[in-house]
Design a protein around this nucleic acid. Structure first.
Length: 636
RNA sequence: GCGCCUGUAGCUCAAUGGAUAGAGCGUUGGCCUCCGGAGCCAAAGGCUAUGGGUUCGAAUCCCGUCAGGCGCGCCA
């Protein structure tokens, strides 16, 4: 549904343009801090007063006079606070409009958005840092879809890297296994978690082992067995493990793009030809970078190596090629195969370099979001620069690094996990997660703990409930707790992870939202069972007594802003505003519902108004929670 | 050294330049004869690190200072 407020704003702009010289940017509207200041407010008078050397209060009066009577939706306009222009809506009309347009989805934007997220190295289990990435990426994708974009979710698989080589060396040369032995390992990803940390300890300061590691890497790149086979096997098995982990929390992908295919299909060669032709990539004149091909990063005046002196391509080089492909700016394409089908029928495809019947056109995005933590800002900015230098200003502007801060551990959390703190770490505010040191909370373990806790909570509240029935409910609640926790912080807030907070199911948490909805559904069920009147257009809010009228209206107004809020979250890269919005709505509802019982109300008009509010609330908040990937259990 | 980010209640965090800086946790005290207590109500708790500046208006923008974090690899 197109927000009614948008319509009202547009009408105001049209009227004001007749009398004032306005640019669009000057006219902003906001929600007043308090209801007594109206339903919609603008500070336009302050801006105009400055321009005309007049007093804001006088200008506001002038504006009010111009607008009065010109807008159907407005009941009253008042000037307050020395120049604020406050608008009071015709509440019953507004409510009716909202009620009648509940089922209207937003129109398709006709634009394709590619969201890349997760992109975990396939050499060990996923950890909490990856969970933040995937949750943000997934909610970003859902927001775009909600707003009418076509969305394709890609997960980039670095299946050729040195990090896979580390564990290949560990298994084949350190633990002396063969491929058959590796295939017998159960829980391979978790096994590699420990091995990866152990092997990295060994590598530290040991030149001989470092050389062995390089040899393994080289053999993988040159497809020499058994290293190559082991690498392929491990990468695929660990990838499956990651997909399983993310599937548990409702995260799906459309395409798995493999680095090995980027290389095999010569994506970089095509990109390099273009970059060389345009002088974007040049041979370095720095003697220390003899024979290297580099790109000058203008913003920080740095020369970044793209092709090493031995002719191999660095990570950014491959990423440039891959991102050019996302925008359909490379004369190359992948081949595809069906990789996996989710229980709901959704299919994941994987790239491949062997010819195959192409199942659908992947890529070709108009907008690209790369969900990658802030530590890669410099490289992501470099890619945007290259896009511009190659003559693609549009894609460069639509290449969006969806940057967020890392997840770290509190020193207390590290100790709690039985890991040692190094000298001086005790006093640090937080400690960076490190796969190399095996220092992180594994995603699966956190999810298991959440599942366990919510199962306990459910069973304590519903002692008669069979475990088979309680289990899926517990999972739904655990997912809500996790996703809400991952999205409630601002993107540039470092999450100093703490079990107690992540496992909190009360207050500002996902389960609180679910609980609100469960109770609300219960009221609706009882209302139907009691044979109360069916849905009908809500009557006039004038029937309500003063206190309820204000609360009621406040909720209606807030609920009507769903689409505006999602748009805001996307525009400002602040998905946390969705969490805050949802939480605020649920708080208001709980407050309201505590004061004004529905089923016990004898007056049919008032009861109907309350039921209408519940139906509107259910409609809007279910959509909002769906955008956050939070489902509503039948009971809890 | 250069670049980016952060500093708000005891703790963890919110607050499109806007009206009296808000939540959760913790603390203290209340609330089911009443639609589910994962709930509701209330109290206490703030010179928004600090010094200037811009503005009708600053937690928010600019400059300085202090404190902390992250980048700046022929790793990915």
């Amino acid at each position: 549904m197109k927000s009614l407020q948008e319509k009202i704003k547009n009408a105001m702009v049209a009227v004001l343009r007749e009398s004032f010289d306005l640019s669009q940017t000057e006219l902003t509207f906001s929600q007043p801090a308090e209801r007594k200041f109206g339903d919609l407010s603008t500070t336009l008078a302050f801006v105009l007063a400055k321009k005309t050397q007049s007093k804001p209060f006088l200008v506001a009066g002038e504006l009010a006079a111009k607008l009065t009577g010109k807008l159907d939706a407005i009941e009253e306009i008042r000037v307050a606070g020395g120049g604020f222009l406050n608008f009071y809506l015709r509440r019953d009309d507004y409510l009716k409009y909202l009620w009648q347009n509940l089922e209207k989805p937003l129109p398709a934007k006709g634009e394709k958005v590619i969201v890349e997220h997760t992109s975990i190295n396939p050499n060990k289990s996923a950890h909490i840092g990856h969970l933040r990435n995937s949750c943000l990426g997934d909610i970003l994708a859902r927001s775009c879809r909600f707003l009418g974009y076509e969305v394709e979710v890609q997960n980039y698989i670095d299946d050729t890297g040195i990090q896979v080589a580390d564990v290949v060396w560990g298994l084949l040369h350190y633990q002396k296994m063969d491929l058959d032995g590796i295939k017998k390992i159960s829980g391979l990803a978790a096994y590699l978690w420990d091995l990866y940390a152990e092997v990295n300890q060994l590598f530290a300061g040991n030149d001989d082992l470092a050389r062995q590691r390089r040899d393994v890497h080289k053999k993988i790149e040159e497809k020499i067995d058994p290293e190559y086979q082991a690498c392929r096997y491990i990468a695929e098995q660990v990838l499956l493990d990651h997909i399983r982990t993310m599937e548990q929390i409702g995260i799906h992908y459309d395409l798995l793009a493999r680095e090995s295919d980027v290389i095999a299909l010569d994506f970089f060669k095509a990109a390099a030809a273009e970059m060389t032709a345009r002088n974007v990539m040049t041979r370095s004149t720095d003697p220390e970078k003899k024979d290297c091909l580099v790109i000058h990063y203008d913003r920080e005046n740095i020369e970044k190596i793209i092709v090493r002196s031995n002719g191999t391509i660095t990570y950014v080089g491959k990423d440039i090629a891959y991102n050019l492909w996302k925008f359909n700016l490379l004369p190359r394409d992948f081949c595809y195969r069906l990789f996996h089908t989710y229980p709901d029928g959704h299919a994941i495809y994987m790239t491949q370099s062997e010819p195959a019947r192409q199942t659908r056109p992947f890529g070709r995005g108009q907008k690209v979001y790369n969900v990658i933590d802030v530590r890669q800002s410099y490289l992501q900015n470099l890619i945007a620069q290259v896009l511009a230098q190659l003559g693609h200003p549009g894609p460069s502007a639509n290449f969006i690094h969806f940057s967020y801060e890392m997840v770290a551990l509190t020193p207390a959390c590290v100790r709690e996990m039985g890991l040692k703190l190094e000298a001086g770490e005790e006093n640090k505010p937080y400690i960076e997660v490190s796969g190399r040191k095996g220092r992180a909370v594994k995603a699966d373990e956190l999810i298991a703990q959440l599942n366990e806790k919510s199962l306990r909570e459910i069973q304590s509240r519903n002692p008669a409930l069979a475990e088979a029935e309680a289990l899926p409910l517990a999972r739904t609640i655990a997912v809500a707790a996790l996703r809400y926790f991952m999205v409630k912080f601002n993107l540039n807030t470092v999450i100093a992870f703490d079990f107690k907070e992540a496992l909190n199911f009360e207050g500002d948490s996902g389960p609180y939202l679910q609980y609100t909805m469960v109770r609300l559904n219960s009221i609706l069920k009882k209302s139907t069972a009691a044979g109360l009147e069916a849905e009908r257009v809500p009557g006039s809010m004038q029937r309500l007594e003063a206190r309820e009228k204000e609360l009621y209206w406040e909720m209606i107004l807030n609920l009507s802003l769903l689409e505006t809020q999602v748009e805001f979250a996307l525009q400002n890269h602040e998905l946390s505003s969705l969490a805050a919005y949802a939480y605020g709505l649920c708080q208001k509802f709980n407050h309201y519902y505590h004061l004004f019982p529905v089923l016990a109300e004898k007056d049919a008009d008032i009861r109907n108004l309350r039921l209408s509010l519940i139906r509107i609330f259910k409609n809007k908040v279910e959509k909002l929670l769906a955008v956050m990937g939070i489902a509503i259990p039948d009971r809890m």
